[in-house]
């Protein structure tokens, strides 16, 4: 036996791959093929489904019927990815560089929400964001917001929910990539005159903050200028006080692999998510996941649901490919290259 393995060393990698490949074949490729076939069906559950290539029209039909949800999915998932990044990066940075003895505890706290079910966590947000909930009630009593102001059932609630639910997926990869940065590289940068960035950082913060704020204002269907100005101000302050040249030139570039992994781990599940829109949104905030879920489980319209799923998958693949190309992952994933 040992002799056999020795003589056929090339087998080893395949043997190690086998369980994973088998798993994917059974639970991914097979249902995938079946779904692909189903997307060319016509008929109903009562009459039975028939396969025909001429049913390719399922695709344009499905896309047309759910185009608004598609756009919304992209926007919501994009906004949520951006927000998780903005929250997770400082969090991961603090844990990695200032965590000291508390690193393990802080990391545990980051993943602690996973100990409760996804559904429960989302529903608890419903309570928090409710019209007279934990968050709004005090603001309303002191008159800071008008009494008919709401967060729940607004786009902002859906995006907040997604942001919260996927935060650990962003935090952990960024933490890992920051953690393995040799501190002496930062010292070397400081040794080579990389000081605070000051005006440059403030201007960059102003511009980036303004742009992102405007986009968020648009997605939240709220005042674009208000969001843009507020975010620009915040960006300028952060840029002035917190962004140093050693960060922009060394720490941040070296953490890009983590940012890349984290944003994929957030964006991909977020774009197909339907739970947050279901519990925290309104009929006007449905995402493509809601449509697919509805068609599959409520209307039993398997062909349309399958076609939508395929369009979503293909869309994500293309988007990831473009993103990877843009960030130059080959160099990034190794941290050097």
């Amino acid at each position: 036996m040992g002799g056999f393995i020795k003589r056929h060393r090339w087998i080893a990698p395949y043997a190690l791959l086998a369980p994973g490949v088998l798993w994917l074949l059974v639970f991914y490729v097979y249902p995938g093929i079946q779904m692909f076939i189903a997307s060319f069906w016509s008929g109903t559950l009562e009459t039975g489904f028939t396969f025909s290539v001429s049913n390719w029209t399922n695709y344009p039909d499905a896309l047309q019927g759910a185009s608004a949800q598609f756009v919304r999915s992209i926007l919501y998932a994009g906004a949520a990815t951006l927000l998780t990044f903005l929250i997770a990066y400082p969090l991961a940075y603090t844990i990695a560089f200032k965590g000291g003895h508390y690193k393990a505890l802080l990391l545990f706290l980051v993943v602690a929400p996973f100990f409760t079910s996804f559904l429960l966590r989302t529903i608890s947000w419903k309570i928090i964001l409710g019209d007279s909930g934990l968050f709004l009630a005090p603001l309303k009593t002191i008159g800071l917001v008008p009494s008919d102001f709401r967060l729940l059932a607004e786009p902002v609630a859906v995006v907040s929910g997604i942001t919260y639910n996927f935060l650990p997926f962003m935090t952990l990869p960024i933490y890992v990539s920051l953690e393995k940065i040799d501190h002496r590289l930062v010292e070397a940068a400081k040794d080579l005159y990389a000081g605070p960035w000051r005006p440059g950082g403030a201007i960059a913060g102003l511009v980036i903050g303004g742009l992102l704020g405007g986009v968020l204002g648009y997605i939240f269907e709220y005042s674009i200028p208000v969001f843009a100005i507020a975010a620009a101000a915040a960006g300028a302050i952060i840029g002035w006080f917190f962004i140093s040249q050693s960060f922009t030139r060394v720490t941040f570039p070296l953490s890009l692999p983590g940012v890349f992994a984290g944003s994929l781990l957030t964006f991909i599940p977020a774009i197909g998510d339907y739970v947050n829109a279901e519990f925290l949104g309104n009929p006007g905030t449905t995402m493509v996941g809601n449509v697919i879920q509805n068609k599959f489980l409520v209307q039993n319209d398997y062909p349309a649901a399958s076609a939508l799923s395929f369009i979503l998958m293909a869309g994500i693949l293309v988007a990831v490919a473009i993103y990877a190309r843009a960030l130059g992952t080959e160099g990034l994933t190794t941290g050097r290259g």
């Binding site: 040799d182 590289l185 010292e187 040794d191 000081g195």
Partner: peptide, 18 residues
Amino acid sequence: PYQRNVNTVFQNYALFPH
């Protein structure tokens, strides 16, 4: 350090890998 007219050669070189 960035305000001192001093430079350092670190033991492990600390070259920027990227």
